[in-house]
Nucleic acid binder design. Structure first.
Lengths: 237, 237
DNA sequence: CGTCGTGTTGACTGCCATCAAAAGTAGTGG
DNA sequence: CCACTACTTTTGATGGCAGTCAACACGACG
């Protein structure tokens, strides 16, 4: 675990938005930052709150959640270490559009909103890199729309697992384990289905040796077969 | 219809990204622009093409479409006059993420990609306003994900119609008519359903006096009732 | 050892996709 | 002006995917 005291330049020098900066500049940025720990389950910021701060996740995993009027939850995305979050202000939003919850113990840095403008103007490459991030998130969102609109539940769940394995996977003896706690319910909230259906799919896949799973744990064993399921198109069959 | 010759400052002076600019600046921007007409059905730019240009729609309606590997189409959004489009470059994309097709006859202005950077740096408010636009599109995308993941087809179609009526509605004697050609198939591609289901819904609603519809035409008569359908939540009933 | 959160499985249901066929609407050219 | 064609829309019949409900099993943790 990273310590609160060791805010040295190496911490963020390799992260895209800061990569092109001089050590002095990184020093400035770190001096302006406040580090904070969040323990598993704690909310880092809440939907509809004024976006006073923006964050950089240094360690841990964060789930970004939106809730409907009727109480359904949808997981918008997962944030892994090295990513910025709560950057509503970058895109002209004054309030957070979603809630961010620490999945495991997290270490974040944060800055007041008004420093965003400074960073953009003062630090070369910061704007470009963060807008690239924004662009990627738009793409992701549009891809999800495409999936939800055109694919079957089985394909969507397969894709979700592939993305998680790719993004937060840890190689183990057996296969690739998703390295944060993940319930059937969580998966259903990522894919617009129910925990029952996810449970049935995982059971079936486990029988075929494609995945193994336990309580809040999922590992992908046969990447290839899972990819096949994700790309399977009943029309062309 | 606007003429190609009448590129005077009033054309764009009221549009958000340009609103704060001096007449001289607007003149510069217009002098750098190329106007072009597209007739109904023509593609303005295509998915996966390098994003060499960015556009401003001056008149007409544009549909933004994505196509899956299996040939399904999804309508990402509609663009109405006064909106920028093809601004992939703003968010660090080098290629267009979707295809834009003229729904009716359209008049657009376009600029080469490399002028984007100039606009952002030189013209005050341009960056802020366009990033606000980007932010709105992210919100829209996330809202659609929420809808697709949690709502029934009926609610999604109701919402889609409400949005269209709001965005491109024209008050008529009877109600609010969506002022561009719109088929059942189009609506189904906006909502992730089939043209059959949309047809059934519209028929049912027409019997209840909520909408009227004809070939490629839909009008909303009873806004209130349609809103009720859009918000109806089986769980709280 | 009891409790609570999580996961599994079976039975049932219903929404909505799919398929098929026919009717309505524009636009075209003879 | 009408026949012809292409597209759009409607409606019925059918079936299946996946949601819902219920009951139970399992594991973690105090």
């Amino acid at each position: 675990m990273l310590s609160l005291r060791s805010l040295d330049e190496n911490l963020i020098s390799h992260i895209p938005p800061f990569r092109k900066l001089e050590r002095v500049e990184i020093r400035e940025i770190l001096d302006a930052a406040t580090p904070k720990r969040f323990s598993a389950g704690q909310a880092i910021f809440e939907e509809h709150e004024p976006a006073e701060l923006f964050f950089l996740l240094l360690d841990g995993h964060v789930r970004v959640i939106r809730t409907t009027a009727s109480g359904d939850q949808v997981i918008a995305r997962h944030i892994v270490s090295g990513e910025l979050m709560g950057i509503a202000t970058a895109i002209g939003r004054t309030h957070y559009p979603a809630t961010a919850v620490a999945i495991d113990d997290c270490l974040v840095l944060y800055w007041p909103r008004n420093l965003w403008q400074t960073f953009v103007e003062k630090y070369d490459g910061f704007a470009t890199e963060t807008y690239k991030t924004v662009g990627q998130r738009i793409s992701e969102a549009n891809n999800r729309i495409l999936e939800l609109a055109t694919q079957q539940v089985e394909q969507r769940v397969a894709r979700a697992l592939l993305r998680l394995a790719h993004q937060s996977g840890r190689q183990t003896g057996e296969g690739i384990e998703i390295d944060f706690p993940l319930t059937r319910q969580n998966i259903s909230e990522m894919t617009g289905t129910t925990l029952y259906t996810v449970s049935r799919l995982l059971s079936a896949w486990e029988k075929q040796g494609i995945v193994t799973s336990g309580r809040k744990k999922v590992s992908v064993i046969e990447m290839g077969k899972l990819k096949a399921l994700a790309e399977f198109d009943p029309e062309t069959e």
